[in-house]
């Protein structure tokens, strides 16, 4: 059993009723997930990305057993998530970035004690896992603090710990770094990397932050319009989308558009110019070239965001 997660031709169709007149209602079918198949071996860390409404969270909801698929087959750790919901729940950890599962008015520790009882975690195991999470997620000083007094970053760390106390086989993270500051993001990412490396916990995460994917996932899946558009390495995604990074240069004074090999100016605003260049290319030669030929004051490189990358993927055959 090397594949922990298996999806075969999974579909999810919703009936949407729309008011078309005072009494009349039109029934329309929306295919939120339209025939998705993939496999995730045990111990892999996968990014699952796509624009809003692409079918990401519907897929996660089917994987966690919240929703029943309309067609196709799902197996997670040998279980059918929607048929064996409670059994499935014991083997997975779920973190919804925007909704905490912690008890708002109670000290953080109380939420863990509930998990201890609800997941029927053996005492020794609970202690061991909690100690580990407390140490690695830096929670020791927070255990006695009511959750409502925690910062967003502290709460997210608390939520992640809560999802791991019962030794889940899979950890689903829905936007785990949303709204966090840079330091909190780094802490969360480091922890996930360690978790994956040491415990071989399989992790599936959705995110809008391309840096999450870059730092965590070797493999990325892109979904849009309910279909899997890409499944492979992140670097390949850039190529597939022919995505571009942006070099922002501040010159000493206003000058005509910079001429540089492998880049084109997309915007000029006073002494500041924006140059687009392929994401797969290195920025160093470009910077060197510009620095040599122009009075360069300052510069910065902007990474493409997921939306831009995905949008570019479609700028070919796909019409919508």
């Amino acid at each position: 059993m090397t594949d922990l997660i298996e999806l075969d031709g999974v579909e999810k169709v919703f009936d949407v009723r729309r008011k078309t007149g005072r009494w009349r209602r039109e029934k329309r079918q929306v295919r939120a997930v339209d025939g998705i198949s993939f496999r995730v071996p045990r111990g892999e860390m996968v990014g699952y990305i796509g624009p809003n409404g692409a079918g990401k969270s519907t897929t996660i909801k089917m994987l966690t057993g919240i929703l029943t698929p309309s067609a196709g087959r799902i197996g997670v750790a040998g279980l059918d998530p929607s048929r064996e919901r409670t059994k499935m729940a014991q083997r997975i950890g779920v973190v919804f970035g925007q909704r905490t599962t912690l008890w708002w008015d109670l000290p953080l520790y109380d939420s863990y004690r509930l998990a201890h009882r609800m997941y029927r975690i053996p005492d020794a195991r609970f202690r061991e896992n909690l100690d580990r999470c407390v140490e690695l997620l830096d929670l020791a000083s927070l255990l006695d603090v009511p959750v409502r007094q925690l910062s967003l970053g502290q709460r997210m760390r608390g939520d992640i710990a809560a999802a791991l106390l019962h030794d889940p086989d899979v950890l689903y993270l829905d936007e785990p770094t949303i709204g966090l500051d840079v330091i909190s993001k780094a802490k969360v990412r480091q922890f996930l990397r360690d978790l994956n490396a040491e415990r071989a916990t399989t992790i599936l995460l959705t995110t809008h932050d391309l840096t999450d994917i870059e730092q965590l996932c070797k493999r990325v899946m892109v979904i849009d319009h309910g279909r899997l558009m890409y499944d492979g390495a992140l670097a390949g995604l850039h190529e597939a989308g022919e995505s571009e990074r942006t070099l922002v240069v501040d010159l000493e004074r206003e000058l005509p558009p910079v001429r540089a090999e492998g880049a084109r100016v997309i915007k000029v605003e006073g002494p500041r110019q924006w140059l687009a260049f392929p994401a797969s290319a290195s920025a160093a030669p470009l910077v060197a070239q510009i620095a040599a030929e122009y009075p360069l004051v300052d510069l910065s490189v902007r990474e493409p965001d997921i939306e831009a990358v995905i949008a570019r993927m479609y700028e070919g055959p796909e019409v919508h």
Partner: peptide, 24 residues
């Protein structure tokens, strides 16, 4: 890495199986 359209999904998963990554 390959970009896959809806039709290419099966191909991508096959490729994955073929490389035979074994879980830790």
């Amino acid at each position: 890495p390959e970009a896959v359209g809806a039709a290419g999904v099966a191909g991508a998963t096959d490729a994955m199986d073929a490389t035979g990554v074994v879980g830790v």
